[in-house]
Design a protein around this nucleic acid. Structure first.
Lengths: 147, 147
DNA sequence: TGCGTTAGACAGATTATCTGTCTAATCTGG
DNA sequence: CCAGATTAGACAGATAATCTGTCTAACGCA
């Protein structure tokens, strides 16, 4: 139960902004033809690094359990967006990597995010938006347990 | 598919901060004894205004469909946290209101949110945090379709 | 070597969410 | 004042997302 309503508190504002950005990116991906990607899958896929990422790490970053993350990776794999390769540094682990097909989708999403951020900068000022970014970056040190 | 990873972009940062706040509030509620409230229910309950709110409005604000919101309100009602009363201004509509039981829970959640915000202010500075709040408030004008 | 930890898979259950449809009430333009 | 369009919200059914619990293999430290 995050908080009460009345005047929009910071929690609600963070949520609204996040969802707006995520939704725009997802809509753009759908519009570009990848109609088979769900938001939950996208949340996972968006956190895959350029050299591959472990399911456990994806789970932590997306704030879901390993099981949920593994399930979503299964779906992304079946759809051809990701592949699992052995982790050379740890034989227990496997790295989830984006395929070429997914790269195109990520590019589409990133382009839309850029567009949205430009709109935001237009509305509140590029300097203010940059300060929000910097402050949240510092905040991450205490809100983000891992890293 | 919000965006790629590498350095944390604004989308991820908004998400991390939001989830941290929400989780702390939810944990506090659980710790205070209301172990029967799920996060999804809390997201809905947190958006109920002091004079009651329509299911449709709750749905819009929480970014879920009316059906989902109605379902969650059903659960909250069964657990005794909310009640539905007729909307005197529109006979089609009903207002969802918090019960006395829920008020205590909301109080607990709000107190925890205050604590978290104080920690955040400690870490990044109260002035910077306030500026984030103000900027996001302005941003809401374009990220929030209704209102 | 041996024990505690970690990665991730499997099974099963629950929760959350959506699309589609329906009724009643409200609003709006002629 | 009425007819059509819209809105509130319920119901049904399906799907998606998520969790808890358990299990095996691999790691890592003492």
């Amino acid at each position: 139960m995050p908080t009460d309503r009345q005047e929009p508190n910071l929690g609600i504002l963070l949520f609204v902004a996040y969802r707006a950005l995520e939704q725009r990116a997802h809509d753009a991906v759908i519009a570009a033809g990848s109609t088979d990607i769900t938001l939950a899958q996208a949340r996972i896929a968006a956190r895959i690094g350029p050299h591959g990422t472990r399911v456990s790490d994806l789970a932590e970053q997306a704030r879901v359990t390993k099981q949920s993350a593994g399930f979503l990776v299964d779906q992304l794999e079946a759809a051809g967006y990701v592949e699992r390769v052995p982790d050379p540094t740890d034989r227990r682990a496997r790295l989830v990597r984006l395929t070429a097909r997914a790269d195109r989708v990520v590019k589409t999403a990133n382009a839309e995010v850029e567009r949205v951020l430009a709109e935001w900068a237009d509305h509140v000022g590029a300097d203010r938006l940059r300060r929000v970014h910097e402050t949240l970056l510092d905040l991450r040190e205490i809100t983000d347990p891992w890293r």
